[in-house]
């Protein structure tokens, strides 16, 4: 398809981008890697008057070790995130999930922040953000604020970011030693969205689960934290047959799965339970 006409501004700094955004108000839209926005434009599902391209804003790029957390610049590409030694060492779940995003071409163009700010519940990163309690750093002309993941995703493709605000970076807390991770993605083709995905982090002590974090991709308009599973799995004996499976049965408790061409809700619920079990097993095994 052919997009409707729009103005294009390539910002060279964050301040310039913020200034342009405030100038154009709600008419303007931020362009990061373009892997989600451009298809929307081409299908004429979005008609922004102005695109503010952050592609040349170097300060928004890169990964930094900040002691208790890792800061990932919003414009860091998926490829850069997935291959970053810092991310791999301190946030393996992020590296695992990011490596499953779409295909190599998309991973080299698409950005970590762009994907999260787009807030597609079928995207792989929102669930990871919820599981790890990431924090979203946003800047506006008024200054900087930090939004916890639990408050960031408001609805389908809707976040807590204000129109004049730009997501600059994401803080990923280091969980520390003893954790194992897994991202279980179920999709029909390599490039297709996840029908259901499960992000899991498990800390074990000896043969039992001490603590777990589980969140689901594409099981509702926003990523779903499977708190029921997290409670049920605490203390589960890994040697006992069926303990993880029983906990995983609670995976879809708080879900509101969509119905689409690839899966109806009852199937998605079933998948969430099966895949959560597999994610728990894998994460616990890797711990």
């Amino acid at each position: 398809m052919i997009p409707a006409s729009f103005d294009y501004v390539r910002a060279s700094s964050l301040d310039e981008a913020l200034e342009t955004l405030s100038e154009h108000g709600e008419e303007a839209k931020v362009l990061a890697g373009g892997q989600s926005l451009l298809p929307l434009l081409r299908l004429r599902l979005a008609y922004p008057g102005t695109l503010v391209d952050l592609g040349r804003v170097e300060e928004l790029r890169g990964v930094a070790d900040r002691g208790d957390h890792v800061l990932i610049g919003a414009m860091t590409t998926h490829y850069e995130v997935a291959t970053s030694p810092v991310v791999r060492e301190h946030c393996p779940l992020v590296a695992l999930a990011t490596a499953t995003v779409a295909d190599p071409a998309v991973r080299h163009r698409g950005t970590f922040g762009g994907s999260l700010a787009h807030a597609d519940p079928a995207g792989d990163l929102p669930a990871v953000a919820r599981a790890l309690d990431m924090e979203f750093v946003a800047r506006s002309p008024e200054g900087e604020r930090v939004i916890p993941a639990a408050d960031f995703f408001l609805d389908y493709l809707e976040t807590a970011l204000d129109p004049g605000e730009i997501l600059t970076g994401i803080r990923v807390p280091k969980l520390g030693p003893g954790w194992g991770f897994h991202y279980e993605k179920f999709h029909r083709t390599a490039q297709a969205w996840a029908i259901v995905g499960v992000a899991a982090a498990v800390r074990r002590s000896g043969g039992a689960v001490e603590e777990a974090r589980v969140a689901l991709t594409n099981m509702g308009p926003v990523p779903v934290r499977a708190t029921g599973v997290e409670q049920a799995v605490r203390g589960a004996d890994l040697g006992a047959n069926g303990a993880l499976r029983a906990a995983a049965e609670r995976a879809d408790e708080d879900a509101d799965p969509p119905s689409d061409l690839h899966a109806r809700p009852d199937y998605r619920r079933h998948l969430a339970r099966v895949l959560t079990h597999r994610a728990l097993v894998a994460a616990a095994g890797a711990a």
Binding site: D103, T189, A190, Q191, A192, W193, L261
Partner: peptide, 16 residues
């Protein structure tokens, strides 16, 4: 027609 794009009409690639 609900399958107007390749997100809905799934063509397998070499990876699949």
């Amino acid at each position: 027609l609900l399958t107007t794009t390749m997100a809905d009409y799934l063509l397998p690639s070499a990876a699949d």
